[in-house]
Every structure is written in structure tokens, then in C-alpha cells.
Design a protein around this nucleic acid. Sequence first.
DNA 1: CGTTGCATGTAAGGTGTTACATGATTAC
DNA 2: GTAATCATGTAACACCTTACATGCAACG
Lengths: 195, 195
Amino acid sequence: MERPDPTKLPATAWAVLGILAFGEELTGYEVRQWADHVLRHFYWSPAMSQIYSELKRLEKVGYAVSRAAVSDDGRGKRVYGITASGEAALAEWAGRAPVEPPVLKHGPMLRAWLGHLSTPERLREQILEHRADTERELAEADASREVAARFPEWAYPELTIRWATRYYAAQRDLADRMLADLAELAEDGRREESA
Amino acid sequence: MERPDPTKLPATAWAVLGILAFGEELTGYEVRQWADHVLRHFYWSPAMSQIYSELKRLEKVGYAVSRAAVSDDGRGKRVYGITASGEAALAEWAGRAPVEPPVLKHGPMLRAWLGHLSTPERLREQILEHRADTERELAEADASREVAARFPEWAYPELTIRWATRYYAAQRDLADRMLADLAELAEDGRREESA
DNA sequence: CGTTGCATGTAAGGTGTTACATGATTAC
DNA sequence: GTAATCATGTAACACCTTACATGCAACG
């Protein structure tokens, strides 16, 4: 008969609450920006609409509160803050809930895996594009890291973004090694043809 | 008025079709095993029930066909194979569809990001556990790679699994460096306390 | 005067998981 | 006998995205 526990939330909800846990009152829009600049690099950035609904859910279970506020330009907005109960629940989740294993969905490798259906040239282009994307992400993460480094209360976020920059660097090296392997495979193919 | 294109499939469907694209007729159960041994390391392994429904969808659009068959032990089963049309569509998708950027959801880093809500000891334990998990995955991927290396028609899958083993190794190194950073942060904390 | 940014939501629908249900064979 | 593996599905539901809808302010 077990009814679903209203405090059993998906990781995304904890991530959103985690953004509020740094103490500032934020609008849904601002939560999204934090997600985009920081969270995205090791977790992921939910759609705007999901952020709004997660915030509502968090408020319903008492982990967040909202109040009407005004922007600098005088327009109305709604800001959310974490509650004591929310902080306790989040700490409990962070410390005791089983850590979900990392999930990876790597589009470029899915293409490489199906290399036999494509051409070495096309595949190479796709991996090169992936490499360029990674480099871009690396630059963005590094910019975010520099911002975080300016504030002592962001020591842990800074560590995770630093982790992300290393992750992107590793990703880039992995792309290079894949490119080398691909070249070798194509070479073998040519040799066989001419034989 | 645009009705949804019945051939516009999610990446998961292409992944399942991709498993069939290596030429063998497989049961849903076997598709799952391939996903678990290979695909999982760079993409992910869908739930059993989803595999069955993806196979049905693929058959409906004509990219796969199924027929009743018998196992060695005489029990009935249903095997799926790729069609010519399916092969063409898959090649088209692999070569021309925009490559989805890699998606990462890293549970352990989500915990590290919220380090201020936990203790250095607990966080360290969690990262160590992640490190051990990674090592396990590395061993499994390496075993799969060795199997793939025995068959020349699996050259591309072998490359991607090799990529995965390197990925896990990088992941492990990243965990080590995070552990070192964490230790340093804790050290700084202690120094401040005693000051 | 058009675009970008700020700001908030709803509705619809697709994606994917968990739980449930079933049943035979093989190995301990 | 009972657990694991093979084998196939359905139903319910949670998660999440896309598209739509709105409106003001600031900048060029």
C-alpha cells in the first residue's frame, strides 16, 4: 500500500535545491543561469520549464519558499530561497543517499561504433567537430572556474568546475587518440585493398 | 500541420538498430546483452522493456523484421534482423544527422559540488567509492574489448570500447586529482581553525 | 523598430523506468 | 527445491523537452 514518499525527489530536484543552498534568493531564471554556467559541466542543465516546476514542487514540500520581489527596473518577479528544512533534507540526501553512477551518452562515439556504415572521412569530420565542441566547453568551464575562484564560499563548486576543465581536457585527448586509431584503421584498409 | 515524421527516431532506437546492424538475428534479450556489454560503456543500456518496444517500433517502420524461432533447448523465441531499408536509414542517420553533444550526469561530482553540506571524510568516502566503481567498469570494458578484438568485423566497436577503457582510466585519474584537491582544502580548513 | 535579455508559465507529448506477470530450463 | 538464466511482454507512472503564449526593458 506504500504511498510514494513526497520527500523522495529526483536528482534534478536536489540539484535545483542545491543551487539555492548557496544562500541567495534567486528567480527561476537565475537558477537556470547558474545551472547553465556551473552545473551543466558535470551534471546537466534542465529546461527552463522544468526548473519552474521543480521550484514549485520544492516549495510544496517545504524545502523552498518564494516571495514576490521587484527587479532593479521595477518589474515584478518571484524569488526562491531554501528553508531550514530544505537545507537539512539536502544535507541528508548528499551524505546518505546512494550515489548514482555517472551516466554518459556520447553521441560522437555512437557514430564511431557504427563506423562500418559510414566513410573514414565523414567519421573523421564528426570526431573533429566533437573535438572543437569540447575545446569550446573547456574554455567556458575555465571562465566559470575563474569566477568561482574569487569567492571563498564557492570552494567546492570551484573544485568541481576544476574537475570539469580536466574532464574536457581528457575528452579532447581521447578524441585525438581516437582520431589516430581511426587513421591507422583506414591505413590498414588501404593496404588490404592494394594487396 | 506537419505530422511527426515516423522515421524520426530517438538515438536509442538507432542504437538498438545499430546492434542489429552487425548482421546477426537477435532476440530482445540478446540485444539487451549487447547493450550491456558494449553500448553501455559509451552510450547507455536501456531497460529491457524499452528494448522490446523499440524493436516493435523498428519493425513497424520497416527497419527490422522478426520471425519466430526456436532456441537450442526447443523453446520458442522471436528473433529480429535489420532490413535493407533499415540499414540505409541507419547509415543516413549516422552520416548526416547532427551529432548530439555528449551528455554527462555525474552523481559523485554533484555530491562534491555540495561539499559544504557534508564532511570532508564522508565526501572522501563517496569519491573513493566512485573510484572503485570506475575501476570495475574499466575491467569490464577491457574484457569486452578483448572479445571484440578477436573478430575483424568488429573493428569499429573495438575502437569505441578502447576509447571507453581510456575514458575510465581518465575518470579514475580525475577522481585521484579530486581526492588530492579535497585533501588540500581540508588542510586549509584545519589551518584556519587552529589560527 | 527589431532583437536580445529578463521573466514566467501551460499544455502536450515523447522518453524511459519500475513494478508486475508469466513460464521454462539449467545448475547447485 | 530454489536460484539463476533465458525469454517476453504490459501497465502505470515519472521525467523531461518542445512548442506555445505573454510582456516589459534595454540596446542598437
